[in-house]
Design a protein around this nucleic acid. Structure first.
Lengths: 350, 350
DNA sequence: TTGGCAATCTGTAACGTTTCAGTATATTGA
DNA sequence: TCAATATACTGAAACGTTACAGATTGCCAA
């Protein structure tokens, strides 16, 4: 009896996630007392309560959700029930619907784990891994040297990234070929006689920033066009900032006669800035823009458009994670989506 | 020993969700055998396997997630990690972020439960209730007589609806005052001299369809304007359909000189249709439109805009559900968001 | 007959938590 | 001094599942 007790807790204190039993052993109390002390039950002595809570905080105790749920029936889950049809122009909803589609006839649930700009992006990942809250993880905004991917690889939790990394580590991903997008975009603009091109880039630091910039540069030299630098903003900036900077740029002596834009919302601001400067789309300047839902041509029919399908991305990412969980080789779960042709919606000018 | 066994299972077979023990009792087998039979383990006789699976299907056995998770560590959860900043123009993502914000410092997780147009909307709700997968539920696309709300009320699971019901039952909700929106919109158009107004309605059948239509009608008689019927489409129709129908409408002899539109994406189509008919926004016709993110004024500065904040809606809904779970009275968890003033972004015409 | 083996099936323990029904000790009132 | 009571703590059981280590039966070879 005594031996068993000790074994158990030596093991526990070594590696595993701490449980009430661990805390009980450390404090020398019973698990019941610990449980009650943590929830401020009245029949626990003030000092004991403080002591238990201190130790719990120190070793980072977090109650096991399955234990609580099994015992009490409390799930600590809020469900948001969504209709998957008819939703428009949104990275987030498209990805969610794509994932949902794939896991619909599996026993899996989709939880959304948010984090904000001010937080370390690693925080939510750490939480998921430490609490064992998920069998698999999908992340976006992937960087060439991505701490999150590295962390998950080290901890052996299956995941998929939206966008590639560049660390010499192999893991599932889905990516849009932004190099090809930029190349096609530049070629198209060049074919229309545009020679001074500017790029409204993806967020600096993300992997596809590099892909896009390189594709842009490669194609520039291919077609013999020149770049007008426009690095004061990226698609991550606010609509107002992009608009203002664009207007400034277009009022200069040497200004671009063509743009490549990496996001639809940013393109709206781009056009507004161009028009603020008194110039006209289709006459003074042309734009090739990515979009994820079919709305830009309504905005200005002169826009040249390349579609990126985020719903597909969501599906692919879900498939990859499930595949990895199911034992497939991570290296076999990578996919790249190639851009379709540049679409022109321009109608006759009256 | 025997007595206890019988007690237990009489209780179980009466009301509760079936477990392995229930199945074991019904088939006369041990729980281990049942467990293995259900997962096609090789050491179970073929007939027994079929028998168990038949009974399981008949009584709708579904494994308890907490039990599986506790025993095996398998969560059956996929986490989608999202950055909550910078996302634009989307009902879904705004709601999600709003909810996330509120539950961020609670122990709650947010799961997304999708359903498609082809399914009975009650299906996902039934699943959630029957499997006890959530402590609280948020639904949208609320109807005056909403089967989902009624069902959840009957089954005692806390929920909140985005939009009100009209069944004489009390439950938490958050709603935007669409009656007030329609009234303000009509008043504004009337003040600009517009007299023949059309309404691009919300989806027929949803509660706020009625609110909007009534507000529109009330204000029409107040200002003495007349309605040009436009009931062939709603904002639920496709961009193309709205555009085509609008163009048809605008080519008629008696056509509206003002529109009220219930959604931003639909407004894009509306404008396109108007321009297809050779008419000009601001000259031949004015539009007051709702939007949920600040983009429409870039599209056409002549548009008149009322903002609806879905992120706020998400927060309020989450707060309501948590409040109900926490024991607050459902009637005290209702909120109505009043529309701000109609915004005009029109700049000087050159 | 015996031993061995395959084919089926079963009881027990364990995952981590909370609740129930206590036990031990100190404190109080008479 | 004794019983009653309050205070502080504890072990065992249970939630539903699966893994482990048997148990039972029938059959076959020796």
């Amino acid at each position: 009896m005594d031996r068993r007790h000790t074994e158990k807790n030596e093991e526990a204190s070594a590696q595993e996630r701490p449980t009430l039993k661990t805390l009980a052993f450390m404090t020398g109390l019973g698990v019941t007392t610990v449980s009650r002390a943590l929830k401020d039950a009245p029949e626990i002595g003030a000092e004991t309560r403080r002591r238990v809570q201190l130790v719990a905080k120190q070793i980072g105790y977090r109650p096991n959700r399955a234990g609580v749920r099994l015992r009490t029936g409390k799930t600590n889950v809020i469900s948001l029930v969504l209709n998957t049809d008819r939703e428009i122009m949104s990275f987030v909803s498209d990805i969610i619907y794509g994932v949902s589609e794939v896991i619909a006839d599996t026993p899996y649930h989709l939880i959304v784990t948010p984090y904000s700009r001010s937080q370390d992006p690693l925080d939510p990942i750490r939480y998921l891994v430490e609490t064992g809250s998920a069998d698999g993880v999908i992340i976006s905004r992937t960087q060439p040297n991505d701490a999150r991917a590295r962390y998950m690889l080290e901890h052996g939790i299956p995941f998929a990234t939206h966008g590639r990394t560049d660390m010499g580590l192999v893991h599932p991903y889905h990516d849009f070929d932004n190099h090809a997008f930029a190349v096609e975009a530049v070629r198209r603009l060049a074919s229309m006689g545009r020679r001074k091109l500017a790029l409204l880039t993806p967020p600096v630091g993300l992997t596809y920033y590099g892909h896009t910039v390189n594709g842009f540069a490669d194609a520039l030299s291919e077609v013999g066009a020149s770049e007008i630098p426009f690095s004061t903003v990226s698609i991550d900036h606010s609509i107002e900032q992009i608009r203002t900077r664009t207007a400034q740029l277009m009022r200069r002596d040497i200004r671009p006669d063509g743009f490549v834009s990496s996001a639809a919302a940013a393109t709206l601001a781009l056009v507004a800035g161009i028009e603020d400067a008194g110039l006209k789309l289709g006459r003074d300047v042309d734009i090739v823009s990515k979009q994820s839902s079919d709305l830009l041509h309504l905005f200005r029919p002169e826009l040249l458009i390349v579609n990126e399908n985020f719903r597909l991305a969501g599906s692919e990412l879900a498939r990859s994670v499930l595949g990895w969980i199911g034992g497939a080789a991570p290296g076999s779960l990578q996919s790249l989506s190639v851009p379709g042709e540049v679409l022109a919606y321009q109608r006759s000018l009256d």
